[in-house]
Every structure is written in C-alpha cells, then in structure tokens.
Design a protein around this nucleic acid. Structure first.
Lengths: 151, 151
DNA sequence: AATGTATATTTGTATATACAATTATTGTAG
DNA sequence: CTACAATAATTGTATATACAAATATACATT
C-alpha cells in the first residue's frame, strides 16, 4: 500500500505518522471484512466478541465487568450488547446471588450453536486477510505490535 | 501484551485470530491517545485528517470525492465533517464553476494555523506510542501490514 | 430539445459508541 | 445501627458512522 498516495500528499510523511495511518487503514479493512462475514447471522462483531469471551470461560458465567474488561468499548455499551444477545436467546443473565450488584452472564446452547457457525465464517475471513503471512511473520507482527505503547 | 489473557480464554487461539485481536486492541489504544491529543483543540481526529489532507494538496482545492477517497468513512459523513470545519472557519467550500455538481474545499489560513499547533501535539503522541520501535522496525511493521489483504 | 443515465453531493435515519448521571447494593467507620 | 463511601450495572444522551434515498447537475442518445 502506498500510504502517501492514499492520503494524496505531496509531502513526505514522518515514518511514525505513516505507520499509524497504515495501521488505521488495515484495521478498518479488517473490520469491514469480519462484519461482512457475520452479516448473514445478524450478529454484530461486538456481539460476536461477547459470545466468544463467554465460551472461552468454559461454563463459568461472567459479570459485566469481566466481559467489558476484555472488550474495547465502555461498560454501558456492553450492557446493551448483552441486552441484544438476550433478546436473541444467545445468552442468559441473572443477578449474582452472593452479590446482588453483580450479574452472571452465560452463553446458552443456542448461542453456542450459532457461534460455531459464525466461527467457520470468521475463520475463513481471517485466513483470507492474513494468508500472505506465514507463521513466522505473524509472530513478528505480534512482536512489533507489542512494542506500541498501550499503557 | 498477552492477548489470551486479555480476552480471558483458557483455550489456545488460532494465530490469525490472535493477531487480529491484537491489532484491534492496539488500534483502539492509538485512537484514544490521538483523540486525547486533539481534545484541547476541540477538533475530532477525523476533522484533523480532513485538514491534513487539504494541506497536503498545497493550495489546490479538493472536492468531496477526493477527500473521502483518502479517508475511512462514508462520503455522507465527510460532508458533515466539512460542515463542522466550515462552522469553525478552518475550511472554505464553494461550488466548482466548471462543474456545478462538484465542490471546491480548501483549508483557510485559520485552519493552517490550528493545524500547525495540532501537528505538534499529535506528533508527540505518535512518538510516544511508537518510541520503542526503531526505523528498521517501523519499516518491518509497514511491510507486514502491507501483506494483509486490503482488497 | 426531450428523455434517460451517470456523477457528485447532501439529507434522513438507524445503529454504534463515548461520556455523564443515576440506581442499587455492599462495605466500613464512627 | 447509621451515614458515607465504594462498587456494579444501567439509563440517558450526544456524537460518530453506515446505509439508503433524494437532489442537483452534467452527459449521451434520439
């Protein structure tokens, strides 16, 4: 990708600026592709992420904070994502008996079923996006991303 | 960053899934940092991007399509970004005399002034985010990002 | 010139997200 | 026990973005 051409600038960009723009463009493209993969299931990427987090807990229910901590959105929005997954019957929610401020959210069998189907579609999209990168390059990408200050 | 820990899964992730989650987390963090850098100027990151694109054209005005082509948003939203920059006096807009369907958008001196100030703040944030990466690593990052299928 | 088609932009609207305030419950200091 | 602070989640709302439709102009065919 020619980032300079993309933003149509005649001036040379700082290398840092260039890398950040590049990352933004790639990220946007990935989101588009994954959202398209999920469209037939009428589940948003964020809803998919919630389901995936719940499955990763292997039966142990999660509270809102736990789910939100693994997501890149505010807790208020996570509440609403769970609302929507509830309406579709993909998750259950009940107040935690030992601490009635908390809730216990879990994935339902119906949620697991659709998640399995979505997995397939998402995995194909991911593979397509990244198939020009071998294992060594993926590892290298992760190492470089790790060097970006996320704190 | 331990991506598995972040999404709190006990199962091993596919390496592609892991890389994509990692990229998403890093992207989100970068957006946050840059938005924070722009906050004192009361200009959104997307508004900043429009100004930067216009400056890159060195005096030649741009139409909506040209601006939008360099951005990761829909044209309808770019129209509204320009509306807001107009209201602040940072850009000018007039219908193109040779083709009255088109508009000619340009950055104003006032827009250039604030852009210079914002540049400084944004450059600092970018440097902070990426200062653990040397020139060779930035180059390598761009090469790897280029391998992600954006078509 | 009249009609249909393509191009460029804008408007309307639904969904997504961020931020602030609110509610409910629990913990704790006096 | 009461008052106050801390925690957990939700609700309200403003802004951001995506998608569809509408508007205006230009171009092409007859």
């Amino acid at each position: 990708m020619n980032v300079e051409k993309h933003i149509q600038t005649s001036s040379e960009l700082r290398t840092t600026t260039r890398s950040i723009i590049h990352l933004t463009l790639v990220h946007h493209r990935i989101q588009e592709e994954l959202q398209a993969a999920l469209k037939p299931f009428e589940v948003s990427l964020q809803q998919f992420n919630v389901l995936r987090i719940l499955r990763g807990r292997r039966g142990e229910p999660a509270n809102m904070f736990t789910i939100n901590d693994r997501m890149v959105t505010k807790m208020s929005n996570t509440t609403r994502l769970v609302d929507k997954l509830m309406a579709k019957g993909y998750v259950s929610r009940q107040t935690c008996p030992s601490n009635r401020r908390k809730v216990e959210i879990d994935i339902t069998p119906k949620g697991r079923d659709i998640l399995l189907k979505m997995d397939k579609s998402v995995a194909e999209s991911e593979s397509h996006l990244l198939n020009a990168l071998n294992q060594e390059e993926l590892k290298q990408l992760n190492i470089l991303l790790d060097k970006i200050k996320v704190k």
